[in-house]
């Protein structure tokens, strides 16, 4: 099955959005470019048969985090359509450094002969192609490898259970929520003669 045209569409949108974030002078347009970029990234995930990750990307990232960011933009923009002024020299410098970095990464990472490196994966089973990874991911959370992964890893590889991060991340989210709520809210109770003189 040829996904090549779809890949090109999503890849161009992703890269174009990312570049748009950099070159745009208007903060809301930056946000819009970011949405385009991250949304197309979800498309790339679907092409890579990571449907669950792609859906999460849309739900959490695009539908949640970016909405939050746009909220931040709206709340902090001092005027409508605030422009960010950047001097031409800075733009040039940024572009030069960016291209340099990109070529470094590109000629480093892409030069690797991935095909020979990944020869071990040639006997991948049909399960890998179906793209229905939700169940496999769920099983991996409790440490059971998906069928197409058996034999690919040596040692404990592929048996890693992700129950711990799954649980511990909830504590993290709780703590973060408390922190964000603390910063966002006004003093709750009136401090009556307590030591809080900092504010």
């Amino acid at each position: 099955m040829s996904n090549q045209p779809l890949f090109w569409i999503f890849a161009l949108l992703t890269c174009g959005g990312a570049v748009g974030v950099v070159i745009s002078q208007n903060i809301v347009r930056m946000a819009f470019s970011l949405i385009v970029s991250l949304g197309s990234t979800a498309g790339l995930f679907f092409l890579l048969e990571a449907d669950f990750v792609g859906a999460t990307q849309l739900l959490v990232y695009v539908g949640g985090t970016l909405v939050l960011l746009i909220f931040g933009v709206m709340l902090t923009a001092s005027g409508p359509f605030q422009q960010i002024r950047v001097s031409p020299g800075e733009t040039f410098l940024g572009a030069a450094v960016g291209l340099l970095l990109l070529s470094v990464i590109a000629f480093t990472v892409i030069d690797v002969e991935w095909d020979t490196l990944n020869a071990a994966r040639t006997e991948a089973s049909p399960g890998a192609e179906s793209g229905n990874t939700a169940r496999a991911i769920g099983l991996r959370l409790v440490g059971i490898p998906a069928d197409h992964e058996i034999g690919v890893h040596e040692g404990r590889g592929g048996r890693t259970g992700y129950l711990l991060p799954f649980e511990i991340v909830s504590i993290h989210l709780l703590v973060v929520l408390v922190g964000a709520a603390y910063l966002a809210r006004a003093k709750r109770r009136v401090a009556d003669g307590s030591t809080g003189g900092e504010n």
């Binding site: 849309l58 695009v62 539908g63 909405v67």
Partner: peptide, 21 residues
């Protein structure tokens, strides 16, 4: 899809971005 419902909710949640914009 195995995750049809999840994806459906995900896609529907994108509506808000259009509204904000």
């Amino acid at each position: 899809l195995d995750i049809g419902l999840y994806l459906m909710l995900a896609v529907m949640s994108l509506e808000v971005i259009g509204v904000i914009l």
